[in-house]
Nucleic acid binder design. Structure first.
Lengths: 313, 313
DNA sequence: TTGTAAGCGTTATCAG
DNA sequence: CTGATAACGCTTACAA
């Protein structure tokens, strides 16, 4: 491996000059700078990050910790991960994949965390390096979608499309993102002077299907589902009951990666803008690393119009 | 950060002794060893990997390069990635996520590559560090499922279940995994004295559905699909045509992560054993790093029985 | 603007 | 079995 000394020697300058050309090019005279750059590319020199890390007490490496159980990993994590990888690389950082609760500080400058539970927040709050989580938790820098705004949009869509009976299919868990999704529905309903109807189910399309089979849907029903899986169950229940989608039943899901595309009819859904989320997470983390004080951010998701809601006219 | 010197000082030994306790404990007397270990945990010392990397000319870091387009990333990559992360960590290595064709050697000891195209193999073959790919390519160490064995199993299943008319839905691409999947079908058919019928389609459930709509299926048909997406299309086509699955039409997919669970009826499928694949990939890469000569490996996939094939009797 | 010296944390080598 | 020394590649601080 060619090192900075090789470059220095070949360019007839000191190691420091080479280092400056790389890190502070403006401090080097134009002539020497181009000369050194030429040698760098001639020799194919690349910085040894271990050396730099040691000298700087920085690793230029961020750990992405995915805490969900392997079997529950939804496909959109793969997309979030790709976007995080790209965003970090743009900033000269590297992404190290993690999958455990050790929160091992070795080799990293910060953490990006996904799927953290309540029990993790205590630990995360007391880490000596910056942390940004995907989700919402007071006291930790986070990026989240505005879940409430998402279901608010979804509910308004179904109202506008003239569905009469609007019900919310929520998840049977006590997490902020669930309560917020429910809140968006409630608010839109209240503003429209409608009476909310809410059911909580495990996040599984089979169970949603069975549940709705036991509760005959009426024609002209709009279903706001807290997830695409629940939306998928609603779609199947409607078909089983002989109700036409979207003419008699309208359905909006939530999450917007993968599942909605695979449904029998493409699902209208509230899409998580993963690229934007990834960029914000990286931006906040690097700002913290630079010593800035940052505040959590919420990103408003977007409605994707599929075949389970009536089109405008 | 507490360093090896702090531990050495506190334990009244030299840095080297601490280093030995960590890397070659058998070279240290039992008494001193336990003493040093106590101090290590008292002080919460963790190795600085940059220092170690510099001294050893090793990084203990492997890049996982996912070359597929973001939009085409199938969910099972997320699972493969998790398993790779776990396997590497077990061996004291770290996984660095990559998503580009730079094949940047900085900071890594080896590459694990997924989704490589023909045009990549030239580069991959001439890298100065070990590479293991997921897939098949002569001249590069690889781990792959035995695609032929998979479709062979699938075809035999449909033969055993007494489906008369057996057709293969392949992908319209010229890649070894496709030809191998086709070959498994061909072989099973030949052994059973049946005439093969093969169609090639883009890997998309909508297109498969349309294609089969234009080619009325007969009752008592068995469909071996080269992917779960194609299998899903076949399932929908059968239902559209009023054919009962699995009684009149039997369907087996291929891949076995996620899609088969979300189908209207759970799809019988040939499952990629991702954990095993990940473990093998890591094992081969580390063996190469250790200077061993290794050969590519093929893993026989497993049939997952769903609701799209008749049960035994 | 450029160079020199020292140090970041670790381990291989060699000496005791 | 244990320790001193030098080295890995790089950058900060200081000197010229």
């Amino acid at each position: 491996m060619v090192s900075i000394s090789d470059v220095a020697h070949e360019a007839h300058v000191s190691k420091m000059t080479v280092s400056r050309v790389i890190n502070h090019p403006e401090q080097v005279s134009a002539e020497i700078r181009t000369d050194v750059q030429r040698v760098i590319s001639q020799l194919g020199y690349v910085q040894n990050r271990a050396g730099r890390a040691l000298a700087n007490n920085r690793h230029y490496n961020i750990a992405f910790i995915l805490l969900d159980d392997v079997n529950e990993i939804e496909p959109y994590y793969a997309h979030l991960l790709m976007h995080l990888t790209d965003s970090l690389r743009n900033e000269g950082y590297t992404l190290e994949m993690r999958h455990d609760r050790n929160f091992d500080l070795t080799n990293v400058d910060g953490f990006l965390v996904c799927g953290a539970r309540h029990s993790d927040f205590d630990v995360l709050n007391n880490l000596p390096i910056p942390v940004v989580i995907y989700g919402t938790e007071a006291g930790i820098t986070s990026v989240d979608i505005d879940n409430k705004a998402g279901t608010y949009l979804a509910t308004q869509l179904l109202i506008n499309r003239q569905y009469q009976h609007l019900l919310f299919l929520g998840m049977a868990i006590d997490e902020p993102f669930e309560t917020n999704r429910e809140a968006g529905y409630r608010q839109a309903m209240q503003e429209a002077g409608r009476e909310p109807e809410i059911h909580h189910l495990p996040n599984n399309e089979q169970i949603a299907l069975q549940f709705l089979q036991n509760n005959q849907l009426s024609a002209n029903t709009g279903i706001i589902a807290a997830t695409d899986r629940l939306g998928l169950g609603a779609l199947r229940a409607s078909r089983h009951q002989g109700l036409a989608v979207p003419d008699e039943v309208g359905i909006v899901g939530f999450d917007g990666i993968y599942i909605h595309q695979l449904a029998e009819q493409s699902l209208t859904t509230v899409q998580q803008p993963l690229k934007e989320i990834a960029e914000k997470m990286v931006q906040l983390l690097l700002a913290e690393l630079a010593g800035e004080i940052v505040t959590s951010e919420y990103i408003v998701p977007e409605l994707i119009h599929g075949e389970t809601t009536m089109s405008k006219n």
